[in-house]
Amino acid sequence: MKPGLPLLWRRTKERYNLIGSKCESCGTHYMPGRAVCPKCRRKGKLVEHKFSGKGRIYSYTVVRVAPEGYEYFVPYVLAIINLDEGAKITGQIVDADPDKIEVGQKVEMVFRKIHEDNPEGLITYGFKFKLAD
């Protein structure tokens, strides 16, 4: 996908700083944030929550055939991260040998380039993850 500027701009809070939400009624964390808690619905009370950025690899794959705009990164590790607060998100694991990734490894968020339209186009930034010590 080729994201437009407004789409990226209106979500910089989530993308740059991993700010999602937490339901004060049931304690569930959501990333990205939600306006409605699916568990509590009308009884839910959602407030902003800044995630620590720490978590563990829940599942991963090595993407070798990339969508348009991501060819530059191939092969890259795509993972579902189980954040320490409980929410799961999809992100890339960087600065690591794809052959040495394992489910359960500790990771932490880093701020990286996500996507580039073309040399003169828009550059998208956001969160990726690296293995934690």
């Binding site: 996908m1 994201p3 789409l7 979500r11 990205p32 829940y58 599942s59 991963y60 794959t61 993407v63 055939v65 990339a66 969508p67 991501y70 990164f73 890259y76 795509l78 993972a79 579902i80 998100i89 999809t90 992100g91 890339q92 489910v103 996500i114 996507h115 998208t124 956001g126």
Partner: peptide, 22 residues
């Protein structure tokens, strides 16, 4: 999910690969 999967570099084979791994 375009904004939270695809924009992160996910592909459909990638998503099903994540299921296969588990």
């Amino acid at each position: 999910d375009q904004e939270w999967e695809l924009l992160q570099g996910a592909t459909f084979p990638g998503l099903y690969a994540l299921m296969a791994r588990r």
